[in-house]
Amino acid sequence: MSNNLSNRSKKLVSIIIPTFNRAHLIGETLDSVLAQTYQNWECIIVDDGSTDNTVEIINAYVEKDSRFQLHHRPIDRLQGGNASRNYGFGLSKGEFINWFDDDDIMIDTFISRKLELFSEAIDLVICSGTYVDQNLNILKNIDLEIQSYLFKDYLLWKFQIITNCVLIRKSFLENKELFNDKILRGQEKDFFSRLFFNLTSDKYEVLNKPLFLYRQHVNTKSHQNLEYVKSFEKSKIIIALENLKKGIQLNDLQLTGTFCFGLLDSFFRGLEQKDFYNCFFIVRKATPQFYSINKKIGIEFFLSACFFILINKGSFKFEKYFKKSLNA
């Protein structure tokens, strides 16, 4: 083993797993952590208030191997995976961080293959994974290929990564906002878009090799997107607004167009659902950004949107007009 590899083998890796009512699956996840060829890890499991016997199962692993730790989300923190992820980060002692989901499976080289690609200049390594069904039957691999640049490809979902994919140098995360626990949908997108913004290609490595199994569930949030849920829509709008700002800063017309269209869709869909709170929120936050792109359209959107809210009715003709104008 070279000196570099030997030095890396001494680095502690913190695996952080938030969990909630996964008694039927988390054992497989923790077994896959135990099976890692790289052995210098700590596994911080943060329970989010499970009501089944998840805690009992985790305790069996804690008793068997001191590298496993069980913690409970403090009651003064918001419920949800994001608060648990952030709490776990605060407890971590590793030089590298990998958040992981409580129903997925690591290949035995999940840590070692990513760790091999780190150098002093690299802050994060991104690996591929494999989509599987609930019984671990293979559906397809995640294909990772940068087509333009990381931030853009990720937001346009041409570079499809999830939390499991990324091993991150802890020092790179210090003094950065982690997972926004007030966002109820799209937390990963919010987190990684902030992490990837202005990240130069010499700061990360991509390993296009599947190193974990990613379970697809029929009842996950991604399969429940047909119903209109105000809180979920608000999260979507917040993320779109922040990334529209970044697209404008980058002067990337494709990104700005994508998020302008998304905000217009959210506005008119909100009108259909009588969700005037989110409609007003879009008018207040999006108008200045539309104005910075096209002054005439920014003013027209503000006046028209206020009128549509007043009459409780949208207009497909105006929606089409705004999208065409913002794309001009």
Rank of each mutant, 00 (worst) to 15 (best):
N3H: 10
S32N: 13
I309H: 00
T200Y: 01
N40F: 06
I45R: 06
R67A: 05
T37M: 09
L244C: 06
D252N: 14
T258V: 10
G81W: 05
I26K: 07
D47F: 00
C260Q: 04
C127V: 01
T200D: 15
N208A: 14
S66W: 02
F276C: 05
I58R: 04
S315M: 04
C306Y: 09
K246M: 00
K323T: 08
R67M: 02
L250D: 09
S171P: 07
R22Y: 01
E95A: 12
H223S: 15
A121E: 15
K189R: 15
G49I: 10
N86M: 10
I309K: 00
G298F: 03
W157L: 07
A286Y: 03
Q147F: 10
Q216M: 15
I105S: 03
D190R: 07
N21S: 10
G90N: 13
T200G: 02
D181P: 06
I146H: 03
L5H: 13
F89M: 12
L156R: 02
N312H: 12
F196V: 08
I162H: 08
F68A: 09
N251V: 02
E28H: 11
L25K: 11
A240V: 03
H72E: 00
L207D: 05
L115K: 07
W99D: 04
V166D: 05
N59Q: 13
L310A: 15
S92Q: 06
N137C: 10
L184S: 12
L70S: 07
S231M: 08
N225Q: 09
I162S: 12
F118L: 10
I142T: 14
R169P: 03
